[in-house]
Simulated assay, not measured.
Amino acid sequence: MPAESGDGLDRVRAAASARDLTIEIRERPVANSLPEAAQLLGIAPAGIVKTLVVKRSDDTFLFALVPGDRSISWPKLRAVVGVNKLQLPDPQRALDATGYERGTIVPIGSSHDWPIYADDRIVGQRIAMGAGAHGYSLFVHADDLIAAYGATVADISQEAG
């Protein structure tokens, strides 16, 4: 059963506060695509970072943070993680792993602190990402997020398409 929007937002705020991470949460109309969300927020699609929950073969997970105009490079991510197999879980497993529904997933306030792998293209950027609830976006300085969670920074993306 999905959490109420306030629950997700409250978890995000509490987790950010616990790590002294400065975030800004903005309400926005529901978007039907990432480019539409970027337009609503007045930023480039690359400024929205997709938080992807990735399942390992041992049934543990990780977060991959990828710029909105790019996609995961599976060979690059597998090499950085040091495994032969990774996959995207179905929506229910993603919810079970994070406490967030797809489209709202963010490492901040996740029900489990899975390791974070951030694409090196987000370094030095103020980024937007899911906020734990539909109809909201979270803004954070990527470097602060990376530091607060001890994320691994590497080239893990490729051109979308």
Rank of each mutant, 00 (worst) to 15 (best):
41 L>F: 11
41 L>D: 12
41 L>K: 06
41 L>C: 14
42 G>H: 09
42 G>I: 08
44 A>W: 02
44 A>F: 08
45 P>Y: 09
45 P>S: 08
47 G>V: 05
47 G>S: 14
47 G>E: 14
47 G>L: 08
48 I>W: 15
49 V>K: 02
49 V>P: 04
51 T>R: 09
53 V>I: 15
53 V>K: 05
56 R>G: 08
57 S>A: 15
58 D>Y: 02
58 D>N: 13
59 D>Q: 12
59 D>T: 05
59 D>G: 01
60 T>V: 04
61 F>H: 14
61 F>M: 07
61 F>Q: 02
63 F>T: 03
67 P>Y: 05
67 P>T: 07
68 G>E: 02
68 G>T: 04
69 D>K: 01
69 D>R: 05
71 S>A: 14
72 I>T: 13
73 S>I: 10
73 S>G: 10
74 W>R: 08
74 W>S: 08
74 W>A: 10
75 P>S: 06
75 P>Q: 06
75 P>N: 04
76 K>M: 13
76 K>Y: 14
77 L>K: 03
78 R>L: 13
79 A>W: 02
81 V>C: 00
82 G>H: 01
83 V>Q: 10
84 N>G: 15
84 N>T: 15
84 N>W: 11
84 N>V: 12
84 N>D: 15
87 Q>N: 13
88 L>F: 07
89 P>S: 03
89 P>E: 05
90 D>K: 10
91 P>N: 03
92 Q>I: 07
93 R>K: 13
93 R>W: 06
94 A>C: 09
95 L>W: 09
95 L>S: 01
96 D>K: 01
96 D>F: 03
97 A>Q: 03
97 A>Y: 06
97 A>T: 05
97 A>S: 06
98 T>Y: 08
98 T>D: 07
98 T>Q: 07
99 G>L: 06
99 G>I: 02
99 G>P: 05
99 G>N: 01
101 E>I: 03
102 R>W: 04
102 R>C: 04
103 G>T: 00
105 I>L: 08
106 V>W: 07
106 V>R: 06
107 P>D: 08
107 P>N: 07
107 P>W: 08
108 I>W: 04
109 G>I: 02
110 S>K: 02
110 S>M: 01
111 S>L: 14
114 W>A: 11
114 W>L: 05
115 P>D: 01
116 I>S: 00
117 Y>R: 09
118 A>L: 02
119 D>G: 12
119 D>M: 12
120 D>C: 12
120 D>A: 13
122 I>E: 03
123 V>W: 13
124 G>R: 02
124 G>C: 09
125 Q>Y: 14
126 R>W: 03
126 R>Q: 13
127 I>L: 01
128 A>G: 08
129 M>C: 14
130 G>Q: 03
131 A>Y: 04
131 A>C: 06
132 G>Y: 00
132 G>T: 00
132 G>W: 00
133 A>P: 00
134 H>N: 06
135 G>Y: 11
136 Y>W: 13
137 S>E: 15
139 F>H: 15
141 H>W: 05
